[in-house]
């Protein structure tokens, strides 16, 4: 029985390049089933690149990615979604002219023939974010940043994630909303969704995560439990502001 010991996601010496610029150099990391793992690091450290490589929208240069024991290193992005890797992108990336309801419904594209899920899934999303129900017919581009973030999370949930990738979910949001979003992420994790979250808001992220990695200029420089990282002197200085 491998699934008990093997991590859900296993990344081995993953590198990625934009032309001649190396954005990821030899990243090794893993996420176990049921975990909430966060990657903290400064702007430009390669966090977004890492998530996009995991989703398959960016090609990797070297290294391997295994998901649930399967080698997905060169798998197309839409096939990865079918496996249950769902991505809440940085900057939310709404389909601005489509309605909120359409944005959410499209998240289930991989399950588009499953009418039962289309209904059940969107009910769950509206239960999680009741405010979206009132906005269902509005173009997603007219929503506030926080509401767009909710749509982005809802859209990813419609893909029935086994692994939810969250890229800077708190970016550009008012502090009150940031707390809301983190509460939602924690709830989703408690409900059984494995999460890998990239955050600049390191303190808040480490508080809800079980483990964390620190990323600097394309490499993972540290990996430990969240409480160890929160207590670590270097991490405190560099990312927690004291």
């Amino acid at each position: 029985m491998t699934s008990l010991t093997e991590p859900l996601l296993k990344v081995t010496s993953l590198s990625c390049r934009y032309g001649k610029v190396t954005a990821l150099r030899g990243v090794d990391m893993e996420v176990n089933s049921g975990e909430l793992v966060t990657i903290v690091g400064a702007n430009g450290a390669g966090k977004t690149t890492l998530l996009r490589t995991l989703s398959g929208v960016l090609p990797r240069y070297q290294g391997t990615v295994f998901f649930a024991g399967e080698d997905i290193t060169t798998m197309a992005a839409h096939r990865r979604t079918e496996l249950g890797i769902c991505h809440v992108p940085e900057g939310r990336l709404m389909f601005a002219e489509l309605s909120v309801a359409d944005n959410i419904m499209l998240g289930a594209y991989a399950h588009r023939n499953d009418d039962k899920w289309l209904k059940k899934g969107s009910d769950e999303v509206y239960e999680l974010f009741p405010i979206l129900k009132d906005k269902a017919d509005d173009p997603a581009g007219t929503l506030s940043g926080g509401q767009q973030q909710m749509v982005a999370i809802g859209r990813a949930l419609m893909g029935r994630p086994k692994l939810l990738l969250l890229d800077e979910p708190s970016m550009g949001l008012a502090p009150l909303l940031v707390a809301d979003i983190f509460r939602v992420v924690r709830k989703l994790n408690r409900d059984g969704i494995t999460c890998l979250m990239v955050e600049q808001n390191a303190k808040a992220a480490l508080k809800i995560a079980q483990r964390g990695y620190v990323m600097e200029t394309g490499s993972i420089t540290m990996g430990a439990t969240a409480s160890e990282l929160l207590a670590n002197e270097e991490v405190r200085k560099a990312y927690l502001g004291h």
Partner: peptide, 18 residues
């Protein structure tokens, strides 16, 4: 709608499996 989504945001479209 997926076709419209590709035009609205191709990256987001591939991220949700289109």
């Amino acid at each position: 709608k997926a076709l419209l989504a590709c035009s609205a945001n191709p990256i987001a479209a591939s991220l949700i499996g289109i």
